[in-house]
Simulated assay, not measured.
Amino acid sequence: MANETYPYQDPAQVSELLSSHKRFTSGGRGPWHAVSDSDWQDWRWQLKNRINNLDQLESVVPDLSDEEIQGAELANTKLSLGITPYFSNLIHREDPICPIRRQVVPRVEETVSSAWDMSDPCGEDEHSPVPGLVHRYPDRVLFLVTDRCAAYCRYCTRSRLVSNASGYGFQPDYQEQLDYIRKHPEVRDVLFSGGDPLLLS
């Protein structure tokens, strides 16, 4: 089991790997080396040029494991594959257990369901009085505005609806959400979430 999660056996190799995690190593802009600074720093350009499929992913992370290849092929059945060029640039190419790589590169294990799995581990749906609003605590609500993110984190606790890959059909009704809040003066805090609410800016 240890070999599956930590593939290095040689103590010197482990030491070198741990020490490399302490320093940031940029992969450069990779396939986007000719992109202008203004485009590279433009979030809209980053969204338009996201990595969304296996071919694109292999061009940036050429040494994908079999589990990652299968995960990328199956990603759109549960949680879409989406990595911005900037974020992909943070992946340590030679480290199969790079935390950022594990955060955004799908693995086939994601498609395995167990009897104890929960599609809604935070119990949000049962505390949703109107579509897109979660009212679990008396004085605050979670206001979901979108099911999209710039990059899809593989550990997302809202993967049932984020990216709509599994067909959740997220349809927030902003007016209904606002009306609910107006009718509940005990609500003092409104937390915007989704997906990434900044995508609506």
Rank of each mutant, 00 (worst) to 15 (best):
E4W: 13
E4Y: 11
Y6V: 04
P7S: 08
P7K: 05
Q9H: 12
D10N: 15
P11L: 09
P11K: 07
P11Q: 07
V14H: 09
V14P: 02
V14A: 04
S15V: 10
S15T: 14
S15W: 12
E16R: 15
L18H: 09
L18N: 12
H21T: 05
H21K: 13
R23M: 14
F24K: 04
T25M: 13
T25C: 06
G27N: 14
G27R: 06
G27V: 08
G28T: 03
G28K: 00
R29Q: 10
W32N: 00
W32H: 14
W32G: 00
S36H: 07
D37Y: 07
D39Y: 09
W40Y: 01
W40T: 00
D42F: 15
W43M: 09
W43T: 03
W45D: 00
W45M: 01
Q46G: 01
L47T: 03
R50D: 00
L54V: 05
L54K: 03
D55C: 04
D55V: 10
Q56I: 08
L57D: 00
V61Y: 12
P62A: 11
E67S: 15
G71F: 11
A72T: 02
A72V: 10
K78H: 12
L79F: 03
L79C: 03
S80G: 15
G82D: 08
G82A: 15
I83D: 04
I83E: 11
T84Q: 02
P85A: 13
P85V: 07
P85L: 09
S88I: 03
L90G: 00
L90K: 07
I91K: 01
H92G: 07
P96F: 14
P99V: 09
I100C: 02
I100K: 09
R101F: 14
Q103R: 09
Q103F: 05
V104S: 05
P106Q: 06
R107C: 00
S113G: 08
S113L: 14
S113F: 15
W116K: 08
W116F: 10
M118S: 14
D120Y: 13
D120V: 10
C122F: 06
G123H: 02
G123Y: 02
E124W: 02
D125L: 14
H127Q: 06
G132F: 00
L133D: 03
L133Q: 08
V134K: 02
Y137A: 08
P138G: 06
P138R: 15
D139Y: 06
D139T: 15
D139C: 13
V141C: 09
L142Q: 06
L142N: 05
L144A: 13
V145K: 06
A151N: 04
Y152D: 00
C153I: 05
C153E: 03
C156W: 00
T157I: 14
T157L: 13
R158F: 00
S159P: 01
S159W: 02
R160K: 07
R160A: 08
L161E: 10
N164T: 01
G167M: 12
Y168E: 05
P172L: 06
D173P: 04
D173N: 15
Y174H: 12
Q175D: 15
E176D: 12
L178M: 12
Y180V: 10
K183A: 13
E186R: 12
E186S: 11
E186H: 11
R188V: 08
V190K: 03
F192Y: 15
G194F: 00
D196Q: 11
L198V: 13
L199G: 09
L200R: 04
L200G: 01
S201W: 07
